[in-house]
Amino acid sequence: MSTDAFAAAVGKGAALHKPPLREALRTGLIFGVIETITPLIGWVIGLAASQYVSQWDHWIAFTLLSCLGVHMIWAGMGEPEQADELKQTHSFWLLAVTAVATSLDALAVGVTLAFVDVSIFWAAIAIGLATTVMVTIGVMLGRTIGTIIGKRAEIVGGLVLIVVGVAVLFDHLSAATGQ
């Protein structure tokens, strides 16, 4: 489940000017906490109405990730900024929206876990910890990529988010048709 969050984190790290480790950890924690909460929410929803969530989660993830990706591409096509003008952090809300978009699969897992005898608490903790580690690594990897290709890394990051959104949509639609 952490792979889409990892890909988004690489894009986020690439869009920043040499993000420090503390920014990578901050981003990892934001994603990790949201990834911990979403299966719990999914579990509660699963107890009530699982068919409604599974019918729309992939469309919501696709839309959010595509919109964020287009926004990043648009920003990356602007004039390149001087290195000292580039930001070193993303806003909490931008990271939270991205984390929610990449955590909808964890929500779906929570819905599924409502129907089996599994401790949702421990499953959610494991999902959150794995995501925290993967996102922290992703931001630091993105830092290296951003250093190599500069401001245009934001375009690459936007494209990555769109590809992740399309992959989520494709996976769900192909699973629904049995292919």
Results as ranks from 00 to 15, higher is better:
177 T>K: 09
144 T>G: 14
49 A>G: 12
66 S>G: 03
85 E>D: 14
8 A>E: 05
114 A>C: 09
37 I>K: 08
10 V>G: 12
47 L>E: 10
34 I>D: 03
112 T>E: 11
57 D>M: 11
48 A>M: 13
178 G>Y: 04
68 L>S: 05
169 L>I: 00
43 W>I: 01
162 I>V: 05
29 L>V: 14
124 A>I: 10
63 T>C: 01
73 I>R: 09
148 I>W: 15
11 G>H: 04
15 A>W: 08
176 A>W: 13
123 A>S: 14
165 G>H: 06
111 V>L: 00
48 A>G: 09
131 T>G: 03
93 W>A: 15
83 A>M: 06
36 T>F: 15
32 G>R: 14
177 T>S: 13
31 F>E: 08
58 H>D: 02
26 R>W: 15
61 A>M: 06
30 I>P: 02
1 M>C: 07
61 A>N: 00
140 M>W: 08
91 S>M: 02
178 G>M: 05
65 L>C: 02
171 D>I: 08
87 K>W: 10
74 W>E: 05
1 M>L: 09
89 T>R: 15
170 F>C: 03
110 G>F: 04
47 L>I: 08
72 M>D: 00
99 A>C: 05
94 L>W: 10
8 A>T: 01
138 G>R: 04
120 I>T: 04
50 S>A: 14
90 H>F: 10
80 P>G: 07
10 V>S: 11
128 G>C: 04
91 S>K: 07
63 T>P: 01
154 E>Y: 03
105 D>A: 06
19 P>M: 09
23 E>P: 00
94 L>F: 15
21 L>G: 07
45 I>K: 02
81 E>L: 14
63 T>Q: 01
104 L>K: 06
152 R>A: 15
154 E>C: 01
85 E>M: 14
177 T>L: 11
18 K>R: 14
51 Q>P: 11
2 S>N: 09
72 M>V: 01
156 V>F: 12
124 A>R: 12
168 V>W: 00
170 F>M: 07
3 T>W: 00
152 R>P: 00
120 I>R: 06
6 F>D: 01
150 G>Q: 11
25 L>G: 08
20 P>Y: 09
45 I>N: 07
92 F>E: 02
111 V>M: 04
111 V>C: 10
166 V>R: 02
36 T>I: 08
74 W>A: 10
114 A>W: 06
2 S>Q: 07
165 G>Y: 03
89 T>Y: 10
38 T>I: 04
27 T>Y: 07
